[in-house]
Amino acid sequence: MWDAVVVGVGAMGSAALDHLARRGHRVLGLEQFTLAHALGSSHGGSRMIHQSYFEHPDYVPVLRRAYELWDDLDAWQRGHGGNGLFFRTGGVSFGPASSAIITGSLLAARDHGLPYSTLSLADARRRFPQFSPADTDTVFHDDTAGFVIPEETITAQVARAQEHGAEVWENTEVVSITPTAGGVTVDVSRDGRSTTVTARKAVVTAGAWTPRLLGQLNVPLTVERQLMYWLRPAVFEAEFRDGPVFIHDNGTGEHIYGFPWLEGEVPGVKVAAHHNGLPTSPDTLDRTVSPAEVAALRARLALISPALADAEFIDAKACMYTSTPDKNFVIGRDPRAGHENVVLACGFSGHGFKFAPAVGELLADLVESGSLSTGVPMFDPLRFPGVQVAAGR
Rank of each mutant, 00 (worst) to 15 (best):
F246T: 03
G386V: 09
V9S: 04
R64P: 10
L362H: 08
L362C: 11
G215D: 02
H43I: 12
F87D: 09
Q130M: 15
A166L: 06
E173P: 08
D123A: 14
I177H: 06
A4E: 04
M228W: 12
E173Q: 14
A16W: 02
G268Q: 08
I314K: 01
E239W: 09
G243A: 00
P150I: 09
R26M: 05
G350E: 04
E368V: 14
Y321K: 05
L297A: 04
H19V: 10
A36I: 09
E368W: 11
A356I: 13
A238G: 05
A208C: 01
F236I: 14
V376E: 10
G84Y: 05
A100N: 15
G258Q: 08
S349G: 15
T89Y: 08
Q216Y: 01
Y116G: 04
R200C: 04
G183K: 06
A272T: 15
P150Y: 10
G44F: 11
T144L: 11
F86E: 02
P211S: 08
E237D: 14
Y257G: 10
A272I: 14
W76D: 02
V148T: 13
T210R: 01
R225W: 02
E237Y: 06
C346A: 12
K201L: 03
D135S: 15
A208E: 05
V235I: 12
H164R: 10
C319Q: 07
A292L: 13
V245C: 09
F140M: 12
V197N: 04
L363N: 13
Y116N: 05
S52P: 14
L262F: 09
A202Q: 08
A316L: 00
R65Q: 15
P291N: 02
V342W: 10
L20Q: 06
M228L: 15
D135F: 03
R88Y: 07
D143P: 02
S189V: 12
E224H: 09
L35N: 03
D310C: 07
W2I: 05
M320T: 12
F348Y: 11
P357G: 09
A145C: 11
R300D: 06
E151P: 11
V9P: 09
S41W: 08
S371D: 15
L297K: 06
Y53I: 11
G386R: 04
